[in-house]
Nucleic acid binder design. Sequence first.
DNA 1: GCATATCGTAGGCGCATACCCATAGCGGGT
DNA 2: ACCCGCTATGGGTATGCGCCTACGATATGC
Lengths: 158, 158
Amino acid sequence: MRVNENETPPSLLGLTTYLMSRTGKSARSRLAERLADRGLRLRHMAVLAALVDLGPHVQRELAVRLAIDRSDIVKIIDELGAAGLVDRARDMTDRRRVTVSVSPAGRALYDRLQADARAVQDDVLAPLNARERARLTTLLMRVHGHLQDGAGAQRAGR
Amino acid sequence: MRVNENETPPSLLGLTTYLMSRTGKSARSRLAERLADRGLRLRHMAVLAALVDLGPHVQRELAVRLAIDRSDIVKIIDELGAAGLVDRARDMTDRRRVTVSVSPAGRALYDRLQADARAVQDDVLAPLNARERARLTTLLMRVHGHLQDGAGAQRAGR
DNA sequence: GCATATCGTAGGCGCATACCCATAGCGGGT
DNA sequence: ACCCGCTATGGGTATGCGCCTACGATATGC
């Protein structure tokens, strides 16, 4: 027998942030794979989520909300538009602005994306029961809320 | 007043995996910034961690343990070697192999890197008290352990 | 002794993410 | 009427990461 060649260095495992990073990355890449099957990336899903949850946005608003560069938003909307998932409409009161909204197709697809996300979640959180998942969620919500605001030292994370 | 333009779409916040991903990413990039100040990347730290915690490795072992391609390991060791943080030595019993070990300088630096990591952690986990942090760690450890093994559906995450 | 497998090395590719700058169109204030 | 600022857009760059191929040196199995 041999020492497990797979085990992670203990001093990393001792860092909660390392665990967050590692498990989070795993969850993200699993979902990303599923989205890729549909020709989408995570950012596309984020944009759809914002539009479905919070209604139509001007592109600049999307950029702020999702912490994505304006010029990158353009490309994402281009792609979503080409797939018929969102509609662009010039704002009549301020013709510089473009209002983006989900199309019915986009809304329907987002339902399926959420199902994908929940499937991944069930997979990742398999070892935890409902109570434990709830506790984990609560703790992470607090951390997330904290990071959302001023958030300590640097800007980081974006 | 206006609706907070910053708030994250609720249907994403409802996903625990999203929270893990988001907070983990934030933690990771914060640490990455600090490492960048020292001219290092996360992978360098991971390699140092493995060497400090678990002793000298043959390069292939590092690749397996850290789930990094062996051709990428080469470059990382090159860089760590150039900085005098690790030593390469040809294995006498199998001259194909190269054994890598931390130098005293590398060991000393790793201490400082760990301090960096803990500083980031304190920053990120600021809203949680010691008990809560412990609970979070425990839950994430279970998830991490689960992902480490067979881990559900796909390979993903790496 | 020869074929096959393993190890380190070198080089390159593709992708997602993150930025940055310049331009053209439009609104608002003066 | 004019200037300034904001909007979307288009283009470009850099980085980190993951992955893949080819090759020479060496070990190992037959």
